[in-house]
């Protein structure tokens, strides 16, 4: 099977949200100015629509760009090590075994 990653890490999520806000706001402001120049409000709406599409393409799919800071999980503890740890930990471990 194809191994398609669908998650974003935490840093990526924050980046994606910030960029979507920046892109849409920027296109909105540009659209407002352009619409005021040509005196056509529909142009403003179209420019905002372009911003929406662009922002959707950039920030909605989980691009690799948003997966650069994976969480550092601790290594899984194997079964043998767990037994050693419990035996080393002394009285409490023994009581539990009984």
């Amino acid at each position: 099977m194809l191994d398609i990653q669908t998650h974003m890490d935490y840093v990526g999520q924050s980046k994606a949200e910030r960029w979507s806000r920046i892109i849409i706001t920027f296109f909105g402001v540009v659209g407002l100015i352009w619409g005021a120049i040509v005196q056509q409000f529909s142009q403003t709406v179209y420019v905002l629509g372009v911003g929406f599409i662009l922002s959707s393409l950039i920030t909605i799919p989980p691009w690799p760009l948003f997966r650069r800071n994976p969480l550092k999980w601790q290594k899984p503890v194997s079964n043998n090590e767990q037994k050693q740890q419990t035996s080393e930990s002394g009285d409490e471990g023994k009581k539990k075994k009984k």
């Binding site: 669908t6 998650h7 974003m8 999520q13 924050s14 994606a16 949200e17 979507s20 959707s56 920030t59 909605i60 799919p61 989980p62």
Partner: peptide
Amino acid sequence: MHTVLTRG
């Protein structure tokens, strides 16, 4: 913002 749907 953790899934495609919430971001959309």
